[in-house]
Simulated assay, not measured.
Amino acid sequence: MQFNNIIREIQQVDPEMTERMSTRRKAMKEIAGMGAKLTLAAMPLFLGSLLKKAYGQSGPAQGAVMEILNYALTLEYLEAAFYEAAIAKGTALVPAGAPAMAIKTIGDHETAHVAFLRSAIMSSGGTPVNKPQFDFTAGGTFPDVFTNYGTFLAVAQTFEDTGVRAYKGRAAELVNGGDLLTAALNIHSVEARHAAHIRQMRKANSFGDVKPWITGKDSGIGAVVQASYDGEELTTQAGVNIVNIGGQNISAAAASEAFDEGLTKDQVLAIVSPFIAQ
């Protein structure tokens, strides 16, 4: 498809496109001026630049972006350090074979997230927050977190479930954030896979009656981690009650399972603060 045809098709969907550009004539002149220099390989890049001119909007303020990235970095520091400490215990904590390989893989992912976020912050002119000192016993709430496999997996599940909701809760603040929003959503989906796998590991060891997803606000762990799950019991989305919607037999449990809810910054900080040494 030629560029002229592409522009015409976009205009059919959005007649105001040319007004958001400097002028259609100028845009066509830019395209014509490329001439033979515009190779097939360069076309997607050129078109992307053109559409950015047409639809580009100011993204979130840099200060806000840096705050969100450092917020995410703190959570990733927490998870990466948690798995690093567990891996260091070897088979005294996590059984050899598939369990140890899974924890190693998840730990590697969290370490990669830390490296990415630090790089993104520095390349954007910001300063990464320092890695805190952690107390994974949460002040004695989980005294055997690195000696009891069941406790370790319970805390791991809580961290992963919280991470999923934390990214979801602040993603909207990165709207028009371009690559940073894409990266945040990419990390969010990986955290969800981690959470599902840890839940399956707990189920396989009879450490909890859990599913790969959350039913209502049930943690499958107990009241000690309830703050990480409060709010997940919602059955209304965008003002629409999902229970028995359209005459279908949809229970409140199924309706809550079908959607995840985000956590606010204050909620997340309240959850993780017991794990940060004073």
Rank of each mutant, 00 (worst) to 15 (best):
L50R: 03
K52M: 07
K53D: 15
Y55W: 07
G56V: 12
G56I: 05
G56N: 12
Q57P: 03
Q57S: 03
G59Q: 00
G59R: 03
G59E: 11
A61I: 00
A61R: 05
Q62I: 12
Q62S: 13
G63R: 07
G63I: 03
G63F: 09
A64M: 04
V65D: 02
M66T: 05
E67D: 13
E67C: 02
E67F: 00
I68Y: 00
I68D: 05
N70P: 06
N70L: 02
Y71K: 00
L73H: 01
L73N: 02
L73R: 03
T74L: 15
T74E: 12
T74I: 13
L75T: 01
E76L: 08
Y77W: 10
L78F: 06
E79A: 14
A80T: 03
A80G: 05
A80D: 07
A81N: 08
A81Y: 01
F82R: 13
E84K: 14
A85I: 01
A85E: 15
A85G: 04
A85P: 10
A85Q: 14
A86T: 03
A88Y: 07
K89N: 12
K89M: 15
G90I: 09
G90Q: 08
T91Q: 09
A92R: 14
L93I: 08
P95F: 12
A96N: 13
G97I: 03
G97E: 09
P99E: 10
M101P: 00
M101F: 03
